[in-house]
Design a protein around this nucleic acid. Structure first.
Length: 452
RNA sequence: GGCGACGUGGCCGAGUGGUUUAGGCAAGGGCCUGCAAAGCCCUCCACCUGGGUUCGAUUCCCAGCGUCGCCUCCA
């Protein structure tokens, strides 16, 4: 039974499925106006790990993750750079999926774009007005939050408490709203801005409207799980839910939120602050698997600092895993994974995605398999098969034995020959040559193997 | 001001009311090796402070200190 922390109820509880064997997940995707940062990387990795695990468990996963291609920030950038906004969104989306590919994040099953759903949003807003839960003002259409009885469910705060604090920020359209907490469903456009027709005037949808419409359209009412970063909890997710409730519909059954990537001072890294660390830089300079491994070693709800030190530590740990994979490639082939290990793995993962314990189990199993291999013990096969199985569920691709060009293979053979003839000077020279050419040289009783 | 999270060994980072332990990285010693590498074994280093509950607390409760997040831009 898969149990997961639910932000709405503040407890770890079973992820109840609307349809047995199938999971419908909605993940708030990126606003495409700039390069992805480390936080985006974390969110997508966390949910990729979730998705892969659920699929590994035998569930059919439908993961919907949108692209927000209508937004003030996109318009601002287009104006500033004198470019068509579509050019920016297309370019950014392309960069996004390339980066996700490098991270080995599987493409969501559905990738709806806000621009494809404007008409549906207009229809929904019309319905909200018809139900008297939304109203038109000089600058747009707003949802009347007071009509949503349990508003604040995700924020875990009453409307009064929410409004009492914060304070010093500018509230969009404050002057026109019935209640300061009301939020924009539709914003009338200024000349030159992208706009779509609506019965109330040309304009564009508010950010919170696209996700309700797309999630309900694709996944339907009462879908299983809604995910996103901690910062989306309020107002974004709260407001998505508010619209669904105001429509008289049931929304997500379970809410999952991941923690932030923080800087050395423990402060959140994001676009809002100036301290963005670019995901593309990380991907360029390090093995992308290292980021996944760092995240696997921490709990998804806690903060994580991404620095040279822990990325390096993971790079080194991966070297050990790759070495193991190369060593056991033939041993594990066709073997049934050790059932005890797999059962434990499942137990950890089912407990609110306790990946750090699962990773500890992975390394322990690697050690046991290596020891078994050294001792010529038959357990080596099922243990190494279990390691492969866990890595597969994690989306952690280990480097299998690499293709070795014939001249390199010849040198490795010559190295063994030299060792056999006790010509150690020649052997050392050959090893130095191979190492200089970027090969990892490993010699044991069976002989010398090389890999990259 | 409201709501919430966190404070663990050289670093990263789990977890637990009590005999022996997460795990990774780093460091030291050993086995293996012609020497290495890889691997294996061993060692080192710990739970913010002050109270309380308890036979016993790093773990539960209270207070304090510190750090961080959200309170309508944000993964």
């Amino acid at each position: 039974m898969f149990r997961l922390y639910d932000t709405a109820t503040s407890e770890v509880r079973e992820l109840a499925l609307r349809t047995p064997g199938k999971v419908g997940i909605y993940l708030c995707g990126p606003t495409v106006y700039g390069p992805p940062h480390l936080g985006h990387g974390r969110a997508t990795l966390v949910y990729d790990i979730l998705r892969r695990y659920l699929e590994w468990s035998g569930l059919e996963v439908r993961l919907v993750s949108n692209i927000t291609d209508i937004d003030d920030k996109i318009i601002d950038r287009a104006n500033k750079e004198g470019r068509p906004w579509e050019e920016i969104t297309h370019k950014c989306e392309d960069v996004w999926f390339k980066a996700m590919g490098k991270l080995n994040v599987q493409r969501p099953t559905d990738v709806p774009h806000a621009t494809e759903y404007v008409e549906s949003m207009v229809n929904m807003i019309g319905e909200l007005i018809g139900r008297d839960n939304a109203y038109v003002t000089e600058d747009g259409v707003y949802l009347n939050v007071l009509n949503v009885p349990d508003y604040g469910l995700l924020a875990h705060q009453s409307l009064d408490d929410m409004l009492s604090g914060g304070g010093d920020r500018e509230v969009f359209g404050a002057g026109n709203k019935k209640n300061p907490a009301d939020f924009a469903l539709w914003k009338f456009s200024k000349p030159g801005e992208p706009s779509w027709p609506s019965p109330w005037g040309n304009g564009r949808p508010g950010w919170h409207s696209e996700c309700v419409v797309m999630s309900l359209d694709i996944l339907g009412e009462g879908f299983d799980l809604h995910c996103g970063g901690m910062d989306l909890k309020f107002p974004h997710h709260e407001n998505e839910r508010a619209q669904a409730i105001a429509l008289g519909k049931t929304f997500a059954n379970h809410w999952m939120h991941n923690g932030f990537v923080v800087d050395t001072e423990g402060e959140k890294m994001s676009k809002s602050l100036g301290n963005v660390a670019n995901l593309l830089d990380l991907l360029e300079h390090y093995d992308p698997r290292a980021y996944r491994l760092v995240l696997l070693q921490t709990h998804y709800r806690g903060p994580v600092r991404i620095g040279q030190d822990n990325i390096d530590a993971s790079v080194n740990a991966l070297a050990g895993l790759d070495s193991f994979a190369a060593r056991t490639a033939t041993v594990s082939q066709g073997a049934t994974p050790d059932s005890e290990v797999i059962a434990k793995f499942r137990e950890f993962m089912d407990n609110d995605l306790d990946t750090s314990s699962a990773v500890a189990l992975l390394f322990e199993t690697v050690r046991r398999a290596n020891a078994a291999l050294d001792a010529n013990d038959q357990n080596a096969a099922p243990l190494s098969a279990a390691v492969n199985e866990i890595c597969r569920a994690f989306g952690l691709d280990l480097k299998q034995a690499s293709e070795v060009p014939s001249d390199i293979a010849d040198k490795a053979a010559a190295l063994d020959a030299a060792r056999g003839a006790k010509d150690f000077a020649a052997a050392d020279a050959l090893r130095a040559e191979l190492t200089a050419a970027g090969w990892i040289v490993e010699t044991n009783k069976a002989g010398t193997t090389v890999r990259r």
